[in-house]
Amino acid sequence: MKKITIKEIAEMAGVSKATVSRVLNDSKYVSPEIYSRVMKVIEETGYKPSFIARSLVNKKTKVVGLLIPDISNPFYSELVKGMVEVANKYDYNILLCNSFFNQKKEMDFLKLLWEKEVEGIIFMTHEITNKHRKFFEKYTRPTVTVNRKFWGFDIPNVDIDNFLAGYDATEYLVKQNHHRIAIVRAPLSDETAGVERYEGYKKALEDYGIDFDEKLVKEGNFKADTGYKAMEDLLELDSPPTAVFCVNDEMACGVINCVVEKGLKVPEDISVVGFDDIPLASMFIPSITTIRQPIYDMGALSMELMYKMIKGEKVESKTYVLPHKLVVRQSTMKNE
């Protein structure tokens, strides 16, 4: 079936292409008689206006690009929910790109978002590379990062104080009389979960006079199976930990599963603290003591900042730090 063009619509209605464009975009006044005539032809022909063509006329796509590493992680799902609801408020759409931690895919998506003329990009990645830096040196439209500082660039970031959050989680365990406290951190290429939360953990140990033990440090990739494997390794130590701090809740779930399957109990034998407070944390058995990030609010704020930048309003290029909270549940207890 031949696709009808705007030129043909104009000829059939006896008007100019500019008049048809005004009717489609509701951009300038058109008399009721001409409006009805054009709409009648559109309805009779089943004409569908091109989104790209309309966006070129308006100079606006009303689309924001969103690049995340793993939508299957409940943290990102909640974050996206906050962004989408704010985008809907302003009649904007979000083009979601999910890289599954594949750096080549991330770069392909960034190029795609540029080609699609999105009005801005909200960017999250587990590691900022030189390729990312080269891209954003050339990209001139609004950009916001979440949970990731982009050093040397004029880009606002929405986050919590990850160092302090790691400190608070560890300090809580110390005050519960734990002295053999392990950590399941993220790779050190991850500035927040791999470095800042880990540094907070080490600082808390130092402040309370507890010797740092490299054997109590394990690395995961945010998935439950890596938490499980980390706990297996920890239980094989001559002196296993009495508590474990995991830098996300999914790995905490894996740690707890491992402890239980090895015939031990949480929290009677080993206390476990997670991070994020995803919905599963409160429903897991035992429910997980965790650091609550205001995930929805972080997503909502990032989109609010994006909209302001698109509108040309001044936004300070700094980290917008939202408050975190330690939520105590059943997975921890005082060490006797």
Rank of each mutant, 00 (worst) to 15 (best):
R54M: 13
N73P: 06
Y76L: 12
I68V: 14
F75I: 09
K48V: 15
V57K: 09
K48L: 13
R54D: 01
K48F: 14
S72T: 15
N73I: 10
Y76H: 13
I52A: 10
Y47R: 03
K48A: 11
P49D: 12
E43V: 05
S72F: 12
P49L: 12
G65L: 12
K48E: 14
L56A: 02
Y76F: 15
V64R: 05
F51P: 00
A53G: 09
V41W: 00
I71K: 04
E43W: 00
I42D: 02
V64P: 07
I68F: 10
Y47D: 02
Y76I: 15
E44D: 11
A53F: 07
V57D: 01
G46N: 09
V57Q: 07
Y47S: 06
T45Y: 01
L67V: 14
R54Q: 15
F75L: 13
G46S: 11
S72H: 12
L66V: 15
S72G: 11
G65W: 06
S50I: 11
N58H: 13
E43C: 03
V57N: 03
G65F: 07
V63S: 05
T61I: 04
S55E: 10
V64N: 06
Y47V: 03
I71S: 05
V63T: 08
P49M: 12
Y76Q: 15
I71H: 00
P74L: 05
S72P: 03
L56F: 06
F51V: 14
R54C: 04
T45V: 03
P69M: 09
I52R: 07
T45I: 00
P74G: 05
I68Q: 11
Y47F: 10
F75R: 06
F75V: 11
K48I: 15
L66R: 09
V57H: 03
P74V: 07
E44M: 03
L67G: 05
V64L: 10
I71T: 08
S72I: 13
F51G: 07
T45P: 00
S50D: 05
G46L: 09
N58W: 08
F51Q: 12
D70A: 11
K48G: 06
K62D: 04
G46H: 09
E44Q: 06
S72A: 14
I68H: 07
R54P: 06
K59R: 11
V64F: 07
N73A: 10
D70S: 12
K60C: 02
P69V: 02
P69E: 07
V63N: 10
N73D: 12
V41F: 01
N73K: 10
L67F: 05
V41Q: 00
Y47W: 01
K60M: 03
A53P: 04
V41Y: 00
K62N: 11
L66W: 11
K62H: 09
P69T: 04
V41N: 01
P49K: 13
Y76G: 12
P49F: 15
P69L: 04
F75D: 11
I52F: 14
G65A: 13
I68N: 08
N58V: 07
Y47G: 01
E44A: 06
E43I: 05
L66Q: 10
N73Q: 11
I68K: 10
S50L: 08
K48T: 15
I68T: 08
G65C: 13
N58P: 06
G46I: 09
